[in-house]
Design a protein around this nucleic acid. Structure first.
Lengths: 337, 337
DNA sequence: TTGAAAGCGCTAACAT
DNA sequence: ATGTTAGCGCTTTCAA
């Protein structure tokens, strides 16, 4: 507690009962006016109740409500790293969409570790969230805890058709293909790849898309460098790539963050972008607009995805389905445009 | 995995009573083993209870617990913008520190608007969080809602001695002075300022520190440009500054984000950093390390601040106090080092 | 239109 | 060492 010079000693927060007493009605009536139902209340009584509520500064107790209703009116979201601006933006958008429907959002970080992810999910389960958005490190996450607790889940940032899962994501493969296509149109013949590594070790669809784009352009695959989805990861990958004997003239990076790291490696090495090396990346985060040069990137429709995810979770809609949104190429300077 | 068409229809989640029945004990005993107290339980019974818990997949109901205990074991945090990497990092650090003590963190965005801030605080109050971290848009926020609800608060990112408030922040003024001092040591005689605007309209201590640094170096104040604490804000400020008749040779920016915007303006204008314009900024966020050139910046000790804030809120410590941490100058290339 | 009352699942004081 | 039980504040059925 809290060093308080409160002259009015700790009055223990008004309950619905206090309001009822003050308004001279039963506690049920208070409930009716607070919740606008399920019964009607005469305008006169309603006014009295509202006055009493205001006078007492009454606020419904969310815990009691949650207990009674079996719903916490909270949603959970687990992301690998809320510090990554893409996930930060996504979480923010989800938060807003959830708030519109009266839900609060509990955000948990897994740090990209499977065990932490499980722990966070368990934590959310025990807090009785009404649903969870899972940006899993795994391609096919283990949802048993959630199923056992009957908590609906939607895989966010999941971009494959996975019957049995509810998911929303972006078309990774198409997006990557788009990026490579664009680079090919700029005349590049040797296009490398800086690819983020997934914990699960599955093949990322962006890699498939990159390869597809290259094949469709009748080119040969450039060098591939793998590393974490981070600035640091991109930087290391960049250093390696620039020292390669057959250095590509263009690179597709699987995230903006990695591209930012790559850019740093280029600047340090005196490699000019886009003249010596063209770059296109993925995500469309704000940071990409302010790097130098500004990054051409395949933007994810974050707002739409967030809305769709919330809709899937609490929209009451029926069946599980996979919603996949298209990415859009944003042309800036790094590709040579 | 686990697409399974639930043959077992919705069994309604085991309660402590079910566990008790299965274990052949009373529900109190279950409570004792789950919470490790307040009474002792014989090893034999404990084992039975644990088995039953496992068999039933029992999880305590947090809402019921919160209702009984009057504590939700959640903390709230309201930030202007969780998408801003400084706040994202801070929130993340707070989340971790809170988790160590068994608290979950509910993060809410105010978008820098006072009304939204109030709304978010109200929301947290009604969710009965056990405490809130407030990165207010105001210098002296209105804590009445929180006080009325007897919810302790700590002002985070608040850097003045404010008796009556519990706060933790960084020494803005000293940090800014440090930055300017450093620029002066590099020989700069005309040092401008890109200053973020606070909603409250109060004078930011960074501005005071900038002025102080200039005076201590025996210089004249350079031009000042104000705008939002954002990349965009820094960019606009930068464009203006670079077109000034008496363009400074160095600039202190009140946040890394603004400096990133400034850098973009410089690149576009062909102004070389640090040769034509040296830059030092504030925050020490990850983005500053990967800009080009990398930003010399006054880093906030985010982890320490987060820990201190959590400590202040739930450490049980007694009195209100203002904890102010020193910033540290990180020398990178943008200042000319 | 309003009221009385039965719980939701849990904790802990009190009884055994 | 273990059991019984009163309530935490709320919603909602049922009765008036």
């Amino acid at each position: 507690m809290v060093a308080m010079p409160h002259p009015t000693a700790a009055k223990p927060a008004a309950t619905r009962k206090d309001v009822a007493r003050l308004a001279g009605v039963s506690s049920a009536v208070v409930s009716y006016v607070v919740n606008g139902g399920p019964k009607k209340v005469s305008p006169a009584t309603e006014a009295k109740v509202r006055d009493a509520i205001a006078a007492l500064g009454y606020r419904p107790n969310a815990a009691a409500r949650a207990l009674k209703l079996g719903s916490s009116e909270m949603l959970g979201m687990v992301v690998p790293d809320a510090t990554n601006s893409f996930f930060a933006t996504l979480a923010h958008a989800v938060e807003e969409a959830a708030a519109e429907r009266g839900y609060a959002l509990l955000i948990a970080n897994s740090g990209g570790s499977l065990s932490a992810e499980r722990r966070q999910v368990e934590n959310l389960v025990s807090r009785r969230v009404d649903g969870v958005f899972l940006c899993s490190v795994l391609f096919e996450p283990d949802l048993r805890d959630l199923e056992a607790a009957e908590i609906p889940a939607v895989l966010l940032n999941h971009s494959a058709e996975s019957p049995g899962f509810d998911s929303v994501g972006v078309a990774l493969q198409d997006g990557a293909r788009l990026a490579v296509e664009h680079l090919a149109q700029h005349g590049h013949r040797k296009i490398g790849l800086i690819m983020g590594t997934n914990t699960g070790g599955d093949l990322d669809a962006r890699e498939v898309g990159w390869r597809q784009g290259i094949e469709e352009a009748g080119l040969q695959a450039g060098p591939v460098m793998r590393g974490p989805f981070s600035r640091e990861g991109g930087y290391r990958a960049g250093k390696w790539l620039l020292n390669e004997a057959d250095r590509p003239t263009a690179v597709f990076a699987s995230s903006d963050l990695q591209a930012v790291g790559l850019l740093k490696a280029c600047h340090e090495a005196g490699v000019r972008v886009p003249e010596d090396l063209a770059v296109v990346s993925f995500d469309g985060s704000a940071e990409a607009e302010y790097s130098w040069p500004p990054l051409t990137t395949v933007a994810q429709p974050v707002e739409d995805m967030a809305r769709a995810a919330v809709e899937a979770l609490v929209g009451g809609g029926g069946h599980k389905r996979n919603r996949i949104f298209p990415g859009t190429l944003i042309r800036r300077a790094s590709c040579g445009c």
